[in-house]
Design a protein around this nucleic acid. Structure first.
Lengths: 178, 178
DNA sequence: CCCAATGTAAAACGATCACTTTACACGCGC
DNA sequence: GCGCGTGTAAAGTGATCGTTTTACATTGGG
């Protein structure tokens, strides 16, 4: 495995499991099996590494969340949690741990959330045949909610989100009685 | 103001703004205007302080989220964010930063989430006149989603969650067509 | 064949970490 | 009026932080 890839995926795992600030560079270099000199040649700094980890995770995330219907969206989330565990959104966690004051990290998180919203917009169009901002916002909130509630409620949170999303899609499809 | 109260509310602010691990004890004692000796007499350790902060926040949170209808629930969230800003759930953040391995903190977060769910159960009963686990779960997810999405979408996230919750309540009130 | 690139190991950098200790000041109850 | 509880200030604990440096190995291409 490429040394940079190994570094990034090791860092992602340690950051996710133990937190960003709590994960020291020594622990990281040791786990990745590289010297600290090499690490700094590759990513410049700890903040740089965090940003690289987040951007790589974003790509991986959007490769997984690729289909265009509600079920596929929440299935992807369920698979993600089954594979890696649920400890909340890593982007928000990085942003929170750095007080939002590291530009590269704040930008990585903003980009990720913006892309997620776009993905959901596309799913909404595929589901009901037109744009619906209110519905998309609701699905985003359910997705975000499931991401975080899954840390303490497990996979049931994803089920609940999927069911609620379906109900909302139904009411959006049917002509509103009002 | 009582010295202990001042310590706890100062700590809560710093932890929330800059992160738990990133906030050092020196910065904390200086901001609270107390000696480190006094701090350790009161809360024993940094983890102890974190747990105390969380439990105190839980009390304050449930004092605010006291009413028993959907609007009041999300109004409370909106007020909370207006007063203190939105940086995600502090309980989940503490749990994540400590890797879930500090019992006092893990318990504080579990208690908080359990009480939140109970609160929502009561609101559901008040709204539709009977228990409805699926609806309660959905509202919890919307609440959790709004809490986290508000960090990057602002108050609009709370509006969206409230509207979605209302729609779900409507469909739960009406006899299900199926 | 040698140079440049890329890696390692290990020590050192000053700063900061959570926490303890020493020494001293005040106020209140018995 | 003395002791005790509660506070401060400040130095010191050893460990660990992120990062840089020094010195040396390996390797592939011109």
């Amino acid at each position: 495995m490429d040394i940079r890839t190994r570094l990034i995926s090791t860092a992602e795992q340690l950051f996710d499991r133990y937190g960003f600030t709590a994960t020291g560079m020594d622990r990281l270099t040791q786990a990745a099996g590289i010297s600290s000199r090499t690490l700094y040649k590759h990513v410049g700094s700890k903040n740089g590494l965090m940003a690289v980890v987040l951007n790589e995770r974003d790509r991986r995330f959007h490769r997984l969340v690729g289909a265009d219907n509600i079920d596929a969206l929440f299935d992807a989330l369920e698979i993600w949690f089954a594979q890696e565990g649920a400890r909340g959104c890593l982007f928000l966690r990085a942003w929170g741990e750095t007080g939002g004051s590291v530009p590269e990290i704040a930008e990585a998180m903003a980009r990720h959330k913006q892309r997620l919203r776009q993905r959901i917009d596309e799913i909404v169009v595929a589901e009901i045949g037109r744009r619906d901002d209110e519905l998309a916002e609701a699905i985003l909130l359910l997705f975000e909610g499931a991401t975080h509630a899954a840390t303490y409620r497990g996979g049931a949170a994803v089920d609940g989100a999927r069911r609620a999303a379906h109900r909302l899609v139904e009411t959006a499809r049917a002509p509103r009685r009002r």
